[in-house]
Structures are given as structure tokens and as C-alpha cells.
Computed example of a mutant assay.
Amino acid sequence: MNNDKNFFANVVSEMKKVSWPTGKEVVNYTTIVVVTVVFFLFFFYAIDLGITFLIDKV
């Protein structure tokens, strides 16, 4: 039981050292991730259409 209390005390201590992002940073990071995912979605869709077109032609 003592080890559990020590563990949770250490967790709390370490969480206080974490530097959390601001709200503006979270919005910026989220925007970058969404834009990147959408870009790659269209990129791989175009590649898939191209390969499908080439396979159907042969």
C-alpha cells in the first residue's frame, strides 16, 4: 500500500513538470494535422485512380 501512495505521489510530481500546450497551440497543431491528412487523402486517391486507369487500359 505504501508503494501505491509513493507511486501516485511521484505521478503527481511529474505531471506538475509537464509543459502543457496553450489553446492556440492546440488549434494550430490540430489544423496542421487535419490539412496534412486531407492532402494525403487526395494524393493517394489520385494515385489510386491513376493506377486503376492504367490497369483497366491493359
Rank of each mutant, 00 (worst) to 15 (best):
M1T: 04
M1L: 10
N3S: 14
N3T: 10
D4T: 10
D4M: 10
N6F: 12
N6E: 15
F7K: 11
F7Q: 04
F7W: 09
F7Y: 14
F7P: 01
F8V: 09
F8W: 15
A9Q: 12
V11G: 07
V11I: 15
V11T: 13
V11R: 07
V11N: 05
V12N: 07
V12G: 08
S13D: 13
S13K: 13
E14P: 00
M15P: 00
M15L: 15
K16P: 00
K16S: 12
K17E: 13
V18A: 08
V18G: 00
S19Q: 15
S19F: 04
W20L: 15
W20Y: 14
P21N: 07
T22F: 00
T22Q: 01
G23A: 11
K24D: 14
K24S: 11
K24R: 13
K24T: 12
E25Y: 01
V26R: 08
V27Y: 07
N28V: 06
Y29K: 14
Y29E: 12
Y29N: 04
Y29D: 10
T30G: 08
T30R: 05
T30W: 01
T30V: 02
T31S: 14
I32S: 03
I32H: 04
V33N: 01
V33M: 06
V34A: 12
V34E: 07
V34N: 06
V35F: 10
T36V: 09
T36P: 00
V37I: 14
V37A: 15
V38P: 01
V38R: 01
F39M: 05
F40R: 03
L41N: 11
L41K: 03
L41V: 11
L41C: 09
F42G: 08
F42Q: 02
F43Y: 14
F43E: 03
F44D: 02
F44W: 09
Y45L: 15
Y45K: 07
Y45Q: 08
Y45E: 09
A46N: 06
A46P: 00
A46R: 09
I47N: 10
I47M: 13
I47P: 02
D48A: 15
D48N: 12
D48T: 08
L49W: 07
G50W: 03
L54N: 03
L54G: 14
L54R: 02
L54H: 05
I55Y: 07
I55T: 08
D56I: 06
D56V: 04
D56F: 11
D56T: 08
K57W: 10
K57H: 12
K57Q: 13
